[in-house]
Measured scan of single mutants.
Amino acid sequence: EDGINLEEIREFAKNFKIRRLSLGLTQTQVGQALTATEGPAYSQSAICRFEKLDITPKSAQKLKPVLEKWLNEAELRNQEGQQNLMEFVG
């Protein structure tokens, strides 16, 4: 629908959760960090719904690039050390 690749979103949601957990981050931490930079659309409950795919494809499509960018950045910081990650997450 609307050129939205559901399979891709499903895959990303699954990987997002795995990668988030491997960084040792909670949904709350991700939500707080993103709410600070991106606004309330990225709250803990939004992250939770995204991971469960309990949102419309359109919403998922909107969240995905922001979550992807944030997660990549978080992983980079983590490679530089846990301290850097925690500063990034705030």
Rank of each mutant, 00 (worst) to 15 (best):
Glu1Asp: 08
Glu1Ala: 03
Asp2Gly: 14
Asp2Thr: 14
Asp2Pro: 01
Asp2Gln: 10
Asp2Lys: 14
Asp2Val: 04
Gly3Glu: 15
Gly3Arg: 14
Gly3Cys: 14
Gly3Val: 10
Gly3Leu: 15
Gly3Ile: 15
Gly3Lys: 15
Ile4Met: 05
Ile4Ser: 12
Ile4Val: 01
Ile4Thr: 07
Ile4Glu: 08
Ile4Gln: 01
Asn5Cys: 08
Asn5His: 14
Asn5Gly: 06
Asn5Leu: 07
Leu6Thr: 09
Leu6Ala: 09
Leu6Glu: 11
Leu6Asp: 10
Leu6Gln: 12
Glu7Cys: 03
Glu7Asn: 03
Glu7Lys: 00
Glu7Asp: 14
Glu8Lys: 04
Glu8Arg: 04
Glu8Phe: 03
Glu8Gly: 08
Glu8Val: 02
Glu8His: 09
Ile9Asp: 01
Ile9Leu: 10
Arg10Met: 09
Arg10Pro: 03
Glu11Tyr: 02
Glu11Gln: 08
Glu11His: 06
Phe12Val: 02
Phe12Cys: 05
Phe12Trp: 07
Phe12Glu: 04
Phe12Thr: 04
Ala13Glu: 00
Lys14Trp: 04
Lys14Ser: 07
Lys14Leu: 04
Lys14Thr: 07
Lys14Pro: 02
Lys14Glu: 08
Lys14Phe: 04
Lys14Cys: 04
Lys14Val: 06
Phe16Pro: 00
Phe16Asn: 00
Phe16Ile: 06
Lys17Met: 08
Lys17Glu: 02
Ile18Arg: 15
Ile18Gln: 15
Ile18Cys: 14
Ile18Thr: 14
Arg19His: 02
Arg20Val: 01
Arg20Ile: 03
Arg20Tyr: 04
Arg20Ser: 03
Arg20Glu: 00
Arg20Ala: 03
Leu21Ser: 06
Leu21Cys: 09
Ser22Val: 09
Ser22Tyr: 05
Ser22Ile: 10
Ser22His: 11
Ser22Glu: 12
Ser22Cys: 11
Leu23Asn: 08
Leu23His: 01
Leu23Ala: 03
Leu23Gln: 07
Gly24Trp: 00
Gly24Pro: 01
Leu25Lys: 06
Leu25Pro: 01
Leu25Ile: 06
Leu25Ala: 06
Leu25Trp: 11
Leu25Val: 05
Leu25Tyr: 11
Thr26Arg: 00
Thr26Ile: 01
Thr26Asn: 05
Thr26Gly: 05
Thr26Glu: 03
Gln27Val: 12
Thr28Phe: 14
Thr28Glu: 15
Thr28Leu: 14
Thr28Lys: 15
Gln29Trp: 01
Gln29Gly: 03
Gln29Tyr: 06
Val30Ile: 08
Val30Ala: 05
Val30Glu: 01
Val30Thr: 02
Val30Asp: 00
Gly31Ala: 15
Gly31Thr: 03
Gly31Cys: 07
Gln32Trp: 07
Gln32Ser: 08
Ala33Pro: 04
Ala33Met: 12
Leu34Met: 08
Leu34Gln: 03
Leu34Gly: 01
Thr35Trp: 07
Thr35Val: 10
Thr35Arg: 10
Thr35Gly: 11
Thr35His: 06
Ala36Tyr: 06
Ala36Thr: 11
Ala36Gln: 11
Thr37Pro: 03
Thr37Ser: 12
Thr37Arg: 14
Thr37Cys: 09
Thr37Lys: 14
Thr37Ala: 13
Thr37His: 05
Glu38Pro: 03
Glu38Trp: 12
Glu38Arg: 07
Glu38Ile: 07
Glu38Gln: 12
Gly39Gln: 00
Gly39Thr: 01
Gly39His: 00
Gly39Glu: 04
Pro40Val: 14
Pro40Asp: 12
Pro40Gln: 08
Ala41Pro: 05
Ala41His: 07
Tyr42Ile: 12
Tyr42Trp: 08
Tyr42Phe: 15
Tyr42Ala: 05
Ser43Thr: 08
Gln44Met: 13
Gln44Gly: 14
Gln44Trp: 04
Gln44Ile: 03
Gln44Lys: 14
Gln44Leu: 07
Gln44Asn: 06
Ser45Cys: 06
Ser45Trp: 02
Ser45His: 13
Ala46Asp: 15
Ala46Trp: 02
Ala46Phe: 06
Ala46Glu: 13
Ile47Trp: 02
Ile47Arg: 02
Ile47Phe: 00
Ile47Cys: 02
Ile47Ala: 03
Ile47Pro: 00
Cys48Gln: 14
Cys48Phe: 06
Cys48His: 11
Cys48Asn: 14
Cys48Ile: 07
Cys48Glu: 15
Arg49Thr: 02
Arg49Trp: 00
Phe50Glu: 07
Phe50His: 01
Phe50Ile: 03
Phe50Ser: 04
Glu51Arg: 01
Lys52Glu: 14
Lys52Gln: 15
Lys52Gly: 11
Lys52Trp: 00
Lys52Val: 02
Leu53Phe: 14
Leu53Asp: 05
Leu53Ala: 07
Asp54Trp: 01
Asp54Cys: 08
Asp54Thr: 11
Ile55Val: 12
Ile55Tyr: 13
Ile55Gln: 07
Thr56Leu: 06
Thr56Met: 04
Thr56Cys: 13
Thr56Asn: 13
Thr56Gly: 08
Thr56His: 12
Thr56Arg: 06
Pro57His: 08
Pro57Gly: 11
Pro57Met: 13
Pro57Gln: 03
Lys58Arg: 11
Lys58His: 09
Lys58Trp: 15
Lys58Ser: 13
Lys58Gly: 11
Lys58Tyr: 09
Lys58Met: 07
Ser59Val: 14
Ser59Phe: 13
Ser59Tyr: 08
Ser59Lys: 13
Ala60Thr: 01
Ala60Pro: 01
Gln61Gly: 09
Gln61Asp: 13
Gln61Pro: 05
Gln61Leu: 13
Lys62Gly: 06
Lys62Leu: 13
Lys62Asn: 04
Lys62Asp: 14
Leu63Thr: 05
Leu63Asp: 09
Leu63Gly: 04
Leu63Asn: 09
Lys64Ile: 15
Lys64Phe: 10
Lys64Met: 12
Lys64Thr: 08
Pro65His: 08
Pro65Cys: 07
Val66Tyr: 01
Val66Lys: 10
Val66Ile: 09
Val66Arg: 08
Leu67Ser: 03
Leu67Phe: 00
Glu68Trp: 02
Glu68Leu: 02
Glu68Pro: 01
Glu68His: 02
Lys69Arg: 13
Lys69Cys: 01
Lys69Gln: 15
Lys69Leu: 06
Lys69Asp: 07
Lys69His: 06
Lys69Gly: 05
Lys69Tyr: 01
Lys69Val: 04
Trp70Ile: 06
Trp70Arg: 04
Trp70Glu: 08
Trp70His: 00
Leu71Asn: 04
Leu71Cys: 02
Leu71Gly: 06
Leu71Thr: 03
Leu71Met: 14
Asn72Ser: 12
Asn72His: 11
Asn72Met: 09
Asn72Val: 10
Asn72Pro: 07
Glu73Arg: 08
Glu73Ser: 05
Ala74Tyr: 12
Ala74Val: 07
Ala74Leu: 05
Ala74Pro: 03
Ala74Ser: 03
Glu75Tyr: 04
Glu75Pro: 06
Glu75Ala: 04
Glu75Trp: 04
Arg77Asn: 14
Arg77Tyr: 06
Arg77Thr: 05
Arg77Asp: 07
Arg77Ile: 12
Asn78Glu: 13
Asn78Val: 10
Asn78Arg: 13
Asn78Phe: 15
Asn78Trp: 09
Asn78Thr: 09
Gln79Ala: 14
Gln79Met: 09
Gln79Phe: 01
Gln79Ser: 13
Gln79Asp: 13
Glu80Thr: 09
Glu80Ala: 12
Glu80His: 12
Glu80Ile: 14
Glu80Gly: 10
Gly81Leu: 05
Gly81Asp: 09
Gln82His: 13
Gln82Ile: 04
Gln82Gly: 12
Gln82Pro: 11
Gln82Asn: 11
Gln83Glu: 13
Gln83Ser: 12
Gln83Trp: 06
Gln83Cys: 09
Asn84Met: 11
Leu85Asn: 06
Met86His: 10
Met86Pro: 13
Glu87His: 11
Glu87Gly: 10
Glu87Ser: 11
Phe88Arg: 12
Val89Ser: 11
Val89Asn: 11
Val89Trp: 03
Val89Lys: 12
Gly90Lys: 10
Gly90Asp: 15
Gly90Glu: 07
